[in-house]
Nucleic acid binder design. Structure first.
Lengths: 103, 103
DNA sequence: TCGTTAGTTCGACGATCATCGTACTACGAA
DNA sequence: TTCGTAGTACGATGATCGTCGAACTAACGA
């Protein structure tokens, strides 16, 4: 098995500007919404996005480095999770507010 | 007197991506924090910012067009207000979450 | 071992953005 | 009316960002 967690900021390293900037991009917001609907985690490739694989990888990296998502390997797949607890602990209400927006 | 409200989006025209993008910039976040501390409104020039007047005007326009703030004239001054009710109505918790971030 | 599959990394390119100085407008006071 | 003050509008410029294709890596199965 040997799943491995990709490098990500600790909770106290997360900056609100980076989080907001990460969420303020349509493709990344789509990813976050998909992750919010699947608390068990989602494999990146399963999310339907209007961009190529490399652009998708770029956005996932941006979200991970901002502290919005967490990603671990699972064979050839990479499963991503929304860091709900960390974000809710740091900015209570932010995530639910964003997700409540009717798209 | 004849105060005039500068053009801004209606509540149902506000897009969450624009709001997040507007909030995800350090100077603009400073402005929003200052407005949050002054519910009665703040004259733009009173906020201490590390940028010139023209850059300040640019950021205020961005915030206004995103629907984050409302600005009305008062003589030669322009007083800005945080659109708390609209934002709270659209994205409950978002603003409080952002403002709770220790800067 | 050899493909196949899932995903990343690396430039490159065009678009957007933050910043500035300068010129301009609007209001109030002398 | 003239002057000073508050703020905007207009380019211009350098930096950042989203996007892509191509090359690369890692894991699984035949």
């Amino acid at each position: 098995m040997a799943t491995k967690v990709l490098p990500q900021p600790e909770r106290d390293e997360i900056r609100v500007e980076a989080v907001l900037q990460a969420l303020g991009e349509p493709v990344r917001l789509t990813i976050v919404r998909a992750l919010a609907d699947n608390p068990a985690g989602v494999c990146c490739g399963e999310i339907e996005l209007p961009v190529t694989a490399s652009t998708r990888a770029h956005h996932l990296k941006t979200l991970r480095e901002a502290g919005v998502i967490s990603t671990h390997t699972d064979g050839t797949r990479r499963v991503s999770l929304l860091r709900r607890d960390d974000l809710e602990g740091l900015y209570p209400g932010l995530l639910t507010g964003v997700l409540s927006a009717k798209q």
